[in-house]
């Protein structure tokens, strides 16, 4: 029982990072209708940028803030240079532009920082594990959880209370109506990309703290897809719940199903799960129900 609880709790902690990245993904989709396959590369860039600041001697919180700033600027630039002209284009064109960007960004990261696994030295979070009713957690998980939750709360507050957040919600709801009320759609798109870059950057940094940082952190970007499909593509709470569920599911399937096979379950389980959701409830938990039978 303690093992099950431990698996679930650590799954939630990792899942909170997924939720953060999934939030960024959903935001872009909700506001501008772009299905972003470059999310993994955004996390990579964010993680490496943060590592670089850290190695320059910034204290970790400052490095994180600097990463957020860098992500903000990069997000604005990416949207302005590549994505703005693609609004309203066919779905394949929009997706492929993000695929092109993902090739470009990943290559850029590989070119600049190499392929070796690097760790944050000195370690950001204390190494000794926490013991808690017979369960053992790395402190890094707990702190990642806290950081992810804080950011999630900040973002959700931003959407629901701030002026910019409200204009984003308005655009997502009905672009025409928002435009006629004087909301600048361009600014909303730019902001969505900037926030996605920021969320991905923090998610990548936290994940890099857990396992060390190499180019495979970009795999996170693919894990986001099952999470958002589960939540319904355009639902912010859905993305958060989806991220948490995928984290737990990954842990559980690794522990229980993994014994029966020859390995690889941890990587595959989210996608197998996604196919099942697509079969029975393609609009996810809280997505807009839009059924078109072919």
């Amino acid at each position: 029982m303690a093992i099950l609880l431990e698996l679930v709790l650590s799954g939630i902690m990792v899942g909170s990072i997924y939720a953060l990245v999934a939030l960024g993904w959903t935001l872009i989709y909700k506001c501008s209708g772009v299905l972003n396959l470059a999310m993994g590369e955004l996390t990579l860039i964010g993680a490496y940028v943060c590592l670089t600041y850290y190695q320059w001697g910034f204290p970790f919180p400052l490095a994180l803030v600097a990463t957020l700033l860098t992500g903000f600027i990069l997000g604005l630039a990416t949207e302005r240079l590549f994505l703005r002209r693609m609004i309203g284009e066919p779905i394949l064109a929009v997706i492929m532009i993000t695929v092109g960007l993902s090739f470009f960004f990943r290559a850029l990261v590989g070119f600049t920082w190499g392929t070796d696994t690097v760790v944050f030295t000195p370690p950001v979070f204390p190494r000794e594990p926490l013991r808690f009713y017979g369960m053992v957690f790395g402190q890094v998980y707990l702190w990642s959880f806290v950081a992810a939750i804080v950011l999630l709360v900040v973002f959700v507050w931003f959407f629901q209370q701030s002026r910019w957040g409200l204009s984003m919600q308005a655009t997502a709801d009905d672009e025409m109506a928002a435009l006629s009320l004087g909301v600048s759609a361009k600014r909303v798109y730019a902001l969505a990309w900037a926030i996605a870059f920021m969320a991905a950057g923090v998610g990548g940094t936290l994940l890099g703290n857990i396992n060390g940082l190499n180019i495979s952190v970009g795999y996170l970007g693919l894990l986001v897809l099952p999470a958002v499909v589960l939540g319904g593509l355009n639902s912010v709470p859905g993305a958060i719940v989806g991220g948490l569920v995928i984290g737990v599911l990954q842990n559980l399937s690794d522990a229980y199903v993994g014994k029966l096979t020859q390995g690889g379950v941890k990587e595959i389980a989210p996608f197998a799960f996604m196919v099942i959701i697509l079969l029975f409830r393609p609009y996810g938990l809280w997505g807009w129900v839009k059924i078109e039978r072919v």
């Binding site: 590549f82 693609m86 492929m96 532009i97 092109g100 960007l101 090739f103 290559a107």
Partner: peptide, 14 residues
């Protein structure tokens, strides 16, 4: 090479 390919896709689409 990969970066050039990614950039080529993006530029062709644009």
């Amino acid at each position: 090479k990969e970066a050039a390919f990614g950039l080529a896709i993006v530029l062709f689409l644009l």
